[in-house]
Design a protein around this nucleic acid. Structure first.
Lengths: 129, 129
DNA sequence: CAGTTGTACAACCATTTGGTTGTAGGTTAG
DNA sequence: CTAACCTACAACCAAATGGTTGTACAACTG
């Protein structure tokens, strides 16, 4: 019963790629990978308001790219490499599709070099005479 | 002279991740990887207007994830795996950062097991008594 | 030729995004 | 206790997104 699994996964992937589609957020990810940091520590690094950085962190959090934990009065942000790995897996899936497609084309061209009249011979032999 | 190289690259990466942050667009990418297709052929696959699919393809095109070429009155959309590889490279960069950071922490813990009083011993030994 | 098909593009609309400021609450410092 | 600090969150705004419909045009078809 793998019912309704895809929509959730798709929304997760949407969130991850959307979170990564912003240079400030990618920079936050890089910073907290190198060293976990407080929200205000991160906010001090950017030329925008504290609340704006807070929102960026919230986007990353929704995508599970970072998690926050409390330490005293600070909220410490740390990276969650699993989400990055999931995004990479999606891209690698596409690259695998591409290689399979290339391999299939090669196989067809190698196997039947004489009767290639349908699929792969759209040479538009009627160039608007 | 590597002047002002980053902003452009960042905008490119923004475009790639933004384009991938939508399930319909990811599906279009998968379809054209398997077989290049016309715009109307793609549009027929989705429960939305032709113009909406056209816009999605335009987003993918701006990100260089697909390219269009004319064949007769049709516009053929085909995949551009280089952009996918660039996105994967970004993610792998983060994963490399993560591994380096983990390695550095291990090194510190292994080298100086006695004087660990500052960096990595925040055990909050004062649990709100 | 006229009609159909494939595409582009503009205009419009609702919703989301990315930023701001302001207010309020919890936590530490003096 | 009071003050300073860190954070959350609401309200607001301009711009971008994601969808629609309608119009226009180029290219095949008959």
């Amino acid at each position: 019963m793998v019912v309704q699994l895809e929509p959730l996964r798709q929304a997760e992937i949407d969130a991850i790629f959307h979170a990564l589609a912003d240079a400030t957020r990618r920079d936050i990810v890089a910073r907290v990978i190198e060293r976990e940091q407080s929200v205000s520590g991160l906010a001090a690094s950017y030329a925008m308001s504290f609340a704006a950085v807070q929102k960026h962190i919230a986007v990353l959090e929704r995508a599970s790219l970072v998690v926050k934990s409390q330490r005293g009065r600070e909220r410490i942000v740390r990276a969650e490499p699993a989400a990055i790995a999931r995004a990479r897996a999606v891209l690698e899936h596409y690259e695998t599709l591409w290689r399979h497609r290339a391999a299939a084309i090669d196989a067809i061209l190698a196997e039947e070099p004489e009767q290639q009249g349908e699929e792969h011979a759209r040479h538009r032999r009627h160039h608007r005479s």
